[in-house]
Structures are given as C-alpha cells and as structure tokens.
C-alpha cells in the first residue's frame, strides 16, 4: 500500500485493527459448499455402511441366508458366473440391446423434438400423437410386440424404443422451446436464413441439454431392458436373473442387480465425460 490519502485515516493512525477470529467449521451449514474430500468420503461411507450392515445381518443370522445371502456370497457368485458360466456374454447382449435401441430412439426423437420446439406447425401436428403415447405404459405393448416380432431381438428392441422415443422427444422439445428468442432474432438481423439459424443457433444452443436428457432417458432404458428380458428372453442379464428365481438362487439375482447398477453408473459417467469434453464453454472459469 502507498502512503495514506490525506483525510482518510489508515489503520496505523487509528485504533489497532481487530484480529480476525476464524469460527470453527460446523458440520451442518445451510447450502454451504463442502471440500471435495468430504464429498468423496461421505459418498463412499454410505456404501460401506450399507454393505457392512448387510454383511453383519447375514453373518449373525438375523436374516434367512436363502433369501438374503451375504454380500461376499453375492460377489463370489458373480465371479463364478463370469468365470465359468459365460455371464459376460449375457451382459454384452444386454448392453447391445440398450445401445442399439437407444441410438435408434435418439435418432428419431432428437430431430423431431428440436423441430417441435422450433415450429408451432410441427408441434401442433406431432404433439397430440406423442403426448398420447407417453401416457401408455410401454410394457403394456409386450404381448403385442411378442406376436409381431416373436421372441427374437426385434421385440426387445421395439419395447426399449417405444419406452424411450416419446419421452425423449418431449424433453428435447421443452429444451428447444427454452432457447431464447433474442438469440434467434440476433441471427435473423445478422442475415441468417431459417435453415442457417436452425444449424448455427438453435442446435448448438440446445445441444448440452439434449445430452442431459439422453442421460436421463438412458436410465429409463435400463428399466425397460430388464422388463423385456424377464418377460420373454433366454439371454441377457434379466433372463439370467429370472432363471435364478426359478431355482431359488437369490445370489444370482443379486449379482444381476449389482451388474446393472455398475453398468448404469458407467454409462452415466460416460455421458458426463462427453458433456465436459463437448461443451468446454460451460465450465466456468477455465483457461
């Protein structure tokens, strides 16, 4: 600091400054951010607690081991399934179904949703149809799909497709509508045609939210996958779990659930990673 401006007393001229007295950090603070180490530790501890309690309950015999095998039994079974019973093939079949049906649904739903969000004529034409389908539970089509496509891949892919496409289109439409009019009008007064505005303004503006919607719908997709595989399939994670139920192999059912959970987390992570990679400008304070 330079010399004090005349008329304005500096700290030295007046009373001694009060020493800062940092307050001890309390655990519960409204809406206050916490260190990442806390977040990581807390995130891990809930799982440790969950499996710990489960393990204790099983080992002590508080629960029936037939219906509630211990975590280490489930993990052991999972290893055996992977190593000796080609469970990996079933996992790959399930992943294939998810990926193919989800890509197909996105390829239809995203462009339609964007056009519905942009143009009222498209909205008025398509929305009555889409809105009705959204209220029909997709699993109610299983008997129909089985008759049309048989027990092959077709019926499963169709169920997953129906379950995702209408919801995704609606989400994308809502996000596209939320693109600010000023952005579009800016494009217009800079001489962009309607087609150019779609390509250079609307789509880039809504793309991050499209990716978020896809991430949300992928979770729903897993739900329909298990339904499809439980109802009518001899392959896939759901089918393996259904067989486990028939022979009272609860550990196999639980192994299936664990695998679905892990895959769900993995896909979620992939989407988040892609989001960071594709939209660096959304990371505040980079460079």
């Amino acid at each position: 600091m330079g010399p004090s401006v005349s008329g304005i007393a500096s700290d030295r001229d007046g009373a001694a400054p009060l020493p800062a007295k940092p307050r001890a950090r309390r655990i519960f603070e409204y809406k206050r951010a916490i260190p990442w180490t806390w977040a990581l530790g807390l995130g891990i501890s809930i799982w440790v607690l969950f499996f710990g309690l489960w393990e204790i309950a099983s080992v002590r015999g508080w629960v029936n081991a037939t219906f509630m095998p211990a975590p280490h039994t489930v993990l052991g079974t999972l290893y055996v399934m992977l190593a000796e019973r080609a469970f990996l093939t079933d996992i790959m079949v399930s992943v294939y179904r998810i990926v193919v049906s989800f890509l197909a649904a996105s390829a239809i739903a995203v462009p339609i949703g964007v056009l519905m969000g942009c143009f009222r004529v498209v909205d008025a034409f398509v929305n009555p149809f889409v809105a009705a389908w959204r209220y029909l539970p997709a699993p109610s089509f299983v008997p129909l799909l089985l008759m049309w496509f048989g027990a092959g891949e077709g019926s499963k892919l169709a169920l997953l497709f129906i379950g995702v496409v209408f919801f995704l289109a609606t989400l994308v439409m809502d996000h596209t509508r939320a693109v600010r009019t000023e952005l579009i009008e800016t494009g217009m007064t800079l001489g962009a045609s309607r087609r150019q505005i779609l390509r250079t303004v609307v789509v880039p503006a809504v793309l991050p939210n499209i990716l978020i919607s896809m991430r949300q719908m992928l979770a729903v997709s897993w739900t329909y996958l298990v339904i499809a595989e439980i109802v009518a399939s001899t392959t896939g994670i759901g089918a393996v779990m259904m067989r486990g139920q028939r022979f009272l192999h609860v550990d196999e059912i639980m192994a299936g659930i664990v695998v679905i959970g892990v895959l769900g987390l993995a896909f979620d992570f992939l989407f988040r990673f892609a989001h960071r990679l594709l939209f660096p400008y959304l990371q505040r304070g980079n460079n």
Binding site: R180, E182, L183, T186, V201, P204, A205, L207, F279, Y281, L282
Partner: peptide, 8 residues
Amino acid sequence: QAYTSFDW
C-alpha cells in the same frame, strides 16, 4: 438488452 452472445 438481454445478452445475445453465442455461448458456444
């Protein structure tokens, strides 16, 4: 009046 810079 509203900011119209293209964020991307």
